[in-house]
Structure formats: structure tokens, C-alpha cells
């Protein structure tokens, strides 16, 4: 099976803090990581390869620094890596991003494309389905489990209140929940190999015949950010440092005062 995994390099948003004085984000020193759902996707792809043979190609759109994320994926065991990178790609919203990634994927031969469900910096969950739409292939999102069934896959698709066992023919696209697979660690030999391998870089000139240039980048994005702001913090109330019995009394008084009890 020829498997392609799409990953995103993201800032570790759990490490982001607000500057209490200026109420702005402190971005300095925040590490960049492979998006967690995407990493589960890499693991699922490697497991599929172990079952069926074939190759795993990892694809990332981003700035040149995203090379690090691709090397990490190679060190986990992916066979090839492609970086989609060009200044012209900057400022893309999910539609434009999916247009570029789909154009990159058209240069490859694939049976299965795996993306993470959503990235922790944007949380949109849109790029996977939009890639599938551009490539005119079926999608199964929110995948909790994947099994091979001949040339098809059987995917356990999660909903809030149920799950579906879905049989999907290849080629198809699957979006991975982080529960799908627990990512393996990089091996020492894997890390050495990863830095000997070539990461292929594809830019605007390489892909221009695979998309409409009017549909990429900031100008090709249907949506744009009008403004961004930090939330007004809810004002702090009383904080008591008293004995447990006094604390319980204070809580009871509050519940009575607010007509909760």
C-alpha cells in the first residue's frame, strides 16, 4: 500500500502563556512539535505499512523550518519526505492550504492519505476533508481504528454518541484521532538515517500546473482574519485561605445567596 501522511508543524500551545501585564501571547521559547493528531496518523501509517508492505511518504506544508518535523517523521520510520514551501503559500486559509497540499499530492501515487483530525493551533479540522474534496476521493474522518480488508480499509469512525464501522475503497483519505495509535519513539539509527535522507522541497514553480494560482496564498483565501484579541478575563472574586470547616461554611453561604440550594 502506498500511504501518504500529511503533517503540520505547530507551536506547542499547552506551553503558550499570556503576559499578565500586556495580555499578549508569550511566543518566545515555545517549542515546535508535530501536531499530536498527525503524529498518531504517522504511527497508523507505519502500522499499515507493516501489515501490507509498501511505503509511507510524509508531506508537510510550511516554512523551511518545518524540515525538522519531517526529519522526525523519517526517524520514526517514514520512507520519504516532501516539504511544500514557498512564500507564495503564506497566509493561506484552510481552502487555500488544501488546494496547495492537494496539488502536492497529485505529484504522488497513493492508495491512502492520512491526516490528523485537527491541528492544535487552529483546531479547524477542515484541511483533511477539503483535500479529499479537491482530489475527488472519499473521506472517513474521526478515525479511531483502521484495519486492512484486501484493497479496502475498515475504519472505526467515532461520533459523540456512537461509532460506525465503515468500509472504504482506496484511494481514500482518513483523518486520525490521537486515540488511533500511540506514536512510537524515534530510534537512534532512525535519527541518523533521517539526517542522511533528502527532504524534497516543492514550491510554487513545481506545483503551478496542479492548481489555479488564484486559489492559493493570502489572496486566494476566501476567509481572512479581521482582528484578533485576547479574551477579557473574568474578574477574580474572593479567595479565602481558612480552615476546611470555615471554607465549607463560606461555600454553603454562597450557594444559598445565589439560590443554588
Amino acid at each position: 500500500m502506498k500511504i501518504v501522511v500529511c503533517i503540520k508543524q505547530v507551536p506547542d500551545t499547552t506551553e503558550v502563556k499570556l503576559d499578565p501585564k500586556t495580555n499578549t501571547l508569550i511566543r518566545d521559547g515555545v517549542p515546535s512539535i508535530i501536531n499530536p493528531d498527525d503524529k498518531a496518523g504517522i504511527e497508523a501509517a507505519l502500522q499499515l505499512k507493516e501489515q501490507t508492505g509498501g511505503t509511507v511518504t510524509v508531506v508537510c506544508m510550511g516554512p523551511p523550518q518545518a524540515d525538522v518535523a519531517l526529519r522526525e517523521a523519517l526517524a520514526m520510520g517514514c520512507d520519504d519526505a516532501i516539504l511544500l514551501s514557498d512564500r507564495a503559500f503564506g497566509g493561506s486559509d484552510t481552502f487555500a492550504t488544501a488546494t496547495i497540499i492537494a496539488a502536492g499530492l497529485k505529484t504522488l501515487d497513493f492508495d491512502v492519505i492520512i491526516t490528523g483530525r485537527q491541528a492544535i493551533d487552529g483546531d479547524t479540522a477542515q484541511v483533511g476533508p477539503q483535500i479529499a474534496e479537491q482530489l475527488h476521493i472519499p473521506q472517513v474522518s474521526y478515525a479511531e481504528d483502521i484495519k486492512v480488508d484486501g484493497k479496502a480499509l475498515i475504519v472505526k469512525r467515532q461520533f459523540e454518541d456512537r461509532y460506525h464501522m465503515i468500509k472504504v475503497q482506496t484511494p481514500c483519505l482518513i483523518t486520525a484521532l490521537s486515540e488511533l495509535a500511540k506514536p512510537r519513539y524515534m530510534t537512534v539509527s532512525g535519527i541518523v538515517d533521517a539526517y542522511e535522507k533528502e527532504v524534497k522541497v516543492l514550491g510554487f514553480e513545481d506545483l503551478k500546473n496542479n492548481f489555479d494560482p488564484a486559489n492559493i496564498g493570502l489572496k486566494g483565501s476566501p476567509t481572512n482574519v479581521y482582528k484578533s484579541f485576547t479574551k477579557q478575563a473574568k474578574g477574580a472574586g474572593t479567595v479565602l485561605n481558612v480552615t476546611a470547616d470555615e471554607a465549607v461554611q463560606a461555600i454553603m453561604d454562597k450557594l444559598v445567596e445565589k439560590h443554588i440550594i
Binding site: A98, S141, Y142
Partner: peptide, 23 residues
């Protein structure tokens, strides 16, 4: 923004070529 809405909306937005804002 449910597991159905977030599966369907991006697919349709892509098909009719418009913007979609998530969540």
C-alpha cells in the same frame, strides 16, 4: 460544530468554493 457538521461543512465549502470558519 459536531462530528457530523465538521465532516460535512468543509467538504461542501470546498465544493461550492467558499470560505468556512470552524468552531
Amino acid at each position: 460544530a459536531t462530528s457530523i457538521g465538521r465532516d460535512l461543512a468543509p467538504r461542501v465549502a470546498g465544493r461550492v468554493h467558499t470560505g468556512l470558519t470552524a468552531d
